[in-house]
Design a binder for these strands. Sequence first.
DNA 1: GAGCACAAGATTGTATCCAATATCAAGCTT
DNA 2: AAGCTTGATATTGGATACAATCTTGTGCTC
Lengths: 226, 226
Amino acid sequence: MPQDRTPDQSVTVALSRAIHEHKLPPGTKLGEDDLAEIYGVSRTIVRAALRTLAHEQLVQIQRNRGAFVAKPSPKEALEVFEARELLEPRTAHSAAIKATKADVDRLHRHIEREHAAMTSGDHGAALYLSGQLHVEIARIAAQDTITSFIETLIARSSLVVALYWRRESALCESHAHNSLVEAIAEGDGDKAEGLMKSHLVDLHSALDLSQSAPASRTLKQMLSGS
Amino acid sequence: MPQDRTPDQSVTVALSRAIHEHKLPPGTKLGEDDLAEIYGVSRTIVRAALRTLAHEQLVQIQRNRGAFVAKPSPKEALEVFEARELLEPRTAHSAAIKATKADVDRLHRHIEREHAAMTSGDHGAALYLSGQLHVEIARIAAQDTITSFIETLIARSSLVVALYWRRESALCESHAHNSLVEAIAEGDGDKAEGLMKSHLVDLHSALDLSQSAPASRTLKQMLSGS
DNA sequence: GAGCACAAGATTGTATCCAATATCAAGCTT
DNA sequence: AAGCTTGATATTGGATACAATCTTGTGCTC
């Protein structure tokens, strides 16, 4: 477990990351004893982590039955993207106005890491980084309240994509991310806002929300394999 | 404790309400043993409730030191209202389009209860109901994801008001709420949106975010007195 | 073979215990 | 009187034990 995080935070981060990378598909049962063994902690810690993830809506806890990776309905999927379309364009606008050279450099490096993961075949990491770029942009806007909402929405988006994504290509096209970062680098708020809006509408259009969803595998395999 | 809620949910709701009604001012220490005794549950339940409230940002947990009613900084206060100004107008617009007669009746009755509380001198209840009207409007819009964000923002707003409110009058003027509900009753989305925007700008303007904040009293007094 | 009932085992919910950390009070020094 | 140190006490963090609930497997009946 990494530095100065409490035990439950470490488990939370690990599980969140695994969900984000589609190592734990929607519907996966998250048994307390299993996780306690896998992470080498007591059930107390696991329960705290699961509760946190439930509050973030990545996990659904059913009383007396256990915790499962959340499985957003088509309605929920739609809502998540609607909420993103309401929050992210203005946030990108604000980020463009506020970005420093260091911020832009960081975004460029982030995109490089995303591409590297994609070309090396690490789809899980690419997926995670793809979503995190949106979070990084929100952080530049320096509005923590809205950023925390965006973080939640990005995380839930990874579940939505796992269930409803209809395209063969990667989640976010590199072209879209590049253009966005360019607009931010130019300090062009309106352009960044417009590009973010188009990007989200594009993502939204790649979802097939006219269906439902599949089953699961054992916990240990999913948390170790890559 | 009321019906079919788990023990920790009951404690969560009770504390949330108390915070909302300013019975527990920002900065109040929420000791686990104290709360366990007051609510007649074990520390396990209290800890779960406090964690939930921490996730909702009504409570701040400091490791090894305890839980305290959150005390938003001026920056956080500003952020909360900015986020509301981004989310609530469009939500009011949507609510106006979607509202049924039953919805409108419910809003009218809500306003009546708010007035009744105010005239009977039950300021805490009036305060709570004032904020909840915004939540009710969001519920009519039937977008659960955004509604949950608004719920969080309304709850945090009560903390902000406790710390930074500059006006002598009630939180939300009855005139503003009446107009809003009328626009919703008329199904006029643009009007509802405009009124909500003005209302929020008005609320925002009544905050003095150029200062900081006071101290506290014992837990039992605050949770029983009215 | 299908369906039902029951018991055993697994898992979750909660309480209690123990360890770790912080706070407070008392005593001492300057 | 103010400041520092030390020890006692209070409180929080985490583990473990026990109770409650659910799931699964076995045996019986039709």
